[in-house]
Amino acid sequence: MIAFLGMGLLGSNFVKAMIKKGEQVQVWNRTPSKAKALEADGAKAFEDVAAAVKGAAVIHVTLKDDGTVNEVLAAASAGFEPGAVIIDHTTTSAEGAVQRTKDWKAKGFTYLHAPVFMGPSNALESTGIMLVSGDQEVIRQWEPALAKMTGRVINFGTEEGRAAGMKLTGNLFLITFTAGIADTLSLAKALHIPVEDLNTLFDTWNPGAGLPARLKRVASGNYEQASWELNMARKDTGLFMQAAAQAGTPLAVIPAIAKEMDRWIEKGYGSNDWTVIGKDAVS
C-alpha cells in the first residue's frame, strides 16, 4: 500500500500513473475535494492525514515548502506504520532536507528527499528527472521504484541535502532563463520584430546547445583569451537598453547585468572575455 500526501498537479498525476501500474494508493490533500476527485481513478481518499497513511509502507509527499512538509508529516505520524519510508518530492531548502532525514531516522523512520525536474504531464507519463542523495543503501533499495515514476533518477552521492541544493540551483537557472526570454521578447517588441522571426532564428541557431561549454568557460577562472570582450558586450547591452527605453518597453534582467558589467570594467577587466562577470562565483 502506498500513501500520497499533496494532490496538486504533480501529486495527482503521480497517483494516476501509479494506479495505472496496478498500485493501491491512499491519498490526502489539505483541500479534501482534490483528493476525493482521484477516487474516480481508483485511489482511496481520506480527509484525515493520519488515516491516509495507515497501512502504507511508503509515503510520498508533494507539498509547498519546508514548513508545510514538517506540519503535514507531524500530523500524519500518528498513523505511520513501524519503519515506514517517507519519500519527499517537495522543493525545499537543503537544510530542511538534512534536518528531516536526521529527525525521522531518530524516530525509527526513513526519510528520503527526492525532488524532481518534471511537470504534471511528465508525472502522468512517468518521464522526467528525479534527484536523490544521502544514504546509499536507502537509495539502492528504493531507486527501482523511483525509476518507475520518472524517466531517470540521478544520484548525487552521500551528502544529505545535495539533491535539494541541486534542485534549487536548477530552478534558479530556469527562472533566470525565462526572465531572459522575457527581456528578449521585450527588445523584439521595441524593435518591431515579430515572434515568428525569433522562432526562425532560434530554430536555426540554438544557444542552449552551448550551455555545457559556457558553464565550463565561466567556471574555468580563465578569462584572458576573449571570444567576446566585456567592453563590447557592455556596448551591446547599452544598445538593448536604449532601444527598449525609446519604445517604453521595460527590461527586467539586463539593467542588473549592465551594472555587474560596469563593476568588472571599473576593476580593469574590460578587455577580458565577458564571462569574467562570473569570476566571484568560482574564485
Rank of each mutant, 00 (worst) to 15 (best):
M1T: 14
A3E: 00
L5H: 06
G6M: 04
S12N: 04
S12L: 03
N13M: 07
V15W: 06
Q26A: 13
R30S: 09
R30M: 08
P32K: 04
K34Q: 01
A37Y: 10
E39Y: 04
G42P: 05
F46A: 05
D48L: 04
D48C: 05
A51D: 09
V53N: 04
A57F: 11
I59H: 03
H60A: 02
T62G: 08
G67I: 00
A76G: 01
S77T: 11
F80I: 01
P82Y: 07
G83P: 05
G83W: 09
I86H: 06
I86E: 02
T92G: 01
S93K: 11
E95S: 12
Q99L: 14
R100M: 10
D103P: 00
A106L: 02
T110D: 12
T110M: 10
Y111A: 14
P120G: 05
S126V: 04
S133W: 00
I139C: 01
I139D: 01
P144F: 03
K148I: 00
M149S: 09
M149R: 09
R152N: 06
V153F: 09
G157S: 00
E160L: 15
M166L: 11
L168A: 08
T169L: 11
G170P: 05
L174N: 05
I175M: 12
I175Q: 14
T176N: 12
F177A: 11
T184W: 10
K189E: 10
I193D: 02
T200K: 14
D203I: 00
T204A: 12
P207Y: 13
G208E: 06
G208W: 13
A213R: 03
L215E: 07
R217A: 13
A219R: 15
Q225F: 15
A226E: 01
W228E: 11
W228Q: 15
T237L: 13
F240A: 08
A256T: 05
A258D: 08
M261S: 07
G268I: 09
D273R: 02
W274H: 09
T275K: 07
V276K: 09
A281V: 14
S283M: 15
